[in-house]
Structure formats: C-alpha cells, structure tokens
C-alpha cells in the first residue's frame, strides 16, 4: 500500500505538514485562517515532527500490516481496511480508552479531547482523496507518498 515516508536528510523541521494536516482535519478544511482562529478548539495535527536538531522528520501512522492498535481496540473502532490497507478509527465507536495509544509502537496516535474523547490518527487523507495534504504541502519534498519502501 502507499505510505508516507519521511526524508530526514532534507526535512527542515518547519512543521508546515503539521499546520496543513491540522487544517485538513478541522471544521474548516479549506480555510487555514478560520481553522485556527475561528474553531473553538485548536485543530490537531495527525502528523508530528520529531526533532533533535539538526535531525528532524515527520512521523505519522505507519498503517502497519499487523496493526497492534486494531487488536487492542476494545470497541472495534480501530480497523484496518482490507482493501486500502488504511488503519482508520471510527470516531462514532471510539470511547477514548487510549489503549491504542499504549500499544502503538510509533507513538503516532494522539488524544483528541475537543469533542467526545477520541483517538486521533492519520487517515492518509482518505476522506479528501489523492495525495495526503502533508505530502502536498511539504516545501522541500521531504515527504514522499509511495507504495515502494522508500530508501535513501
């Protein structure tokens, strides 16, 4: 399946991926200013730039083949789509028990407590379609979206 890979050697750590991810998953996906200034709670990015200067790279859900979060989910909200391979959280079923956060080997799941508590994670912009917004908006092409295992 196509995944997002980070190219650590050219990631400048600007975190524009976080900004655009947060906007795409906000109440105003097409208006960056409204998403940040009008939405009652601060929009949450589902991608996280890990930093220890000069090293930085963006991390998001790896959509594991054998995803531990899907096994750990107590309500069946976290499911891996057998066709697309995308691991997605059904927020209507999620009860916010955070078990998925405990078992995620990448620390790629965040808590979203803006509404009823749910786990917030990368959905590869499946709802938007096409290339994920983080990849589209990386100013240095430091994120690639490919079905090959990315090697430097």
């Amino acid at each position: 399946m196509k995944r997002v890979y980070a190219r650590e050697e050219i990631c400048g750590g600007c975190k524009l991926c976080e900004v655009h991810c947060a906007v795409a998953h906000s109440q105003y996906p097409n208006d960056i200013i409204k998403a940040f200034l009008k939405q009652k709670t601060k929009p949450i990015a589902r991608i996280l730039v890990e930093e220890g200067r000069p090293i930085s790279f963006a991390l998001q859900c790896r959509h594991c083949e054998d995803a531990p979060c899907t096994k750990a989910c107590i309500t069946g909200a976290m499911q891996k789509d057998p066709v697309t391979g995308i691991v997605a959280n059904d927020e209507t079923r999620c009860v916010g028990c955070w078990t998925c956060i405990l078992v995620c080997p990448f620390g790629a799941i965040k808590r979203d407590e803006s509404g009823h508590k749910v786990a917030s994670k990368c959905d590869l912009c499946a709802t938007v379609g096409g290339t994920p917004v983080c990849v589209q908006n990386c100013p240095n092409d430091a994120l690639v979206f490919t079905d090959e295992l990315w090697r430097r």
């Binding site: 600007c14 975190k15 524009l16 976080e18 900004v19 960056i32 200013i33 998403a35 940040f36 200034l37």
Partner: peptide, 9 residues
C-alpha cells in the same frame, strides 16, 4: 495563526 513556522525558519 501562531503556527510559529517563522520562528523555526
């Protein structure tokens, strides 16, 4: 939007 991209850049 206080994203602080400018601060980091």
């Amino acid at each position: 939007i206080k994203c602080q991209v400018c601060v980091r850049q």
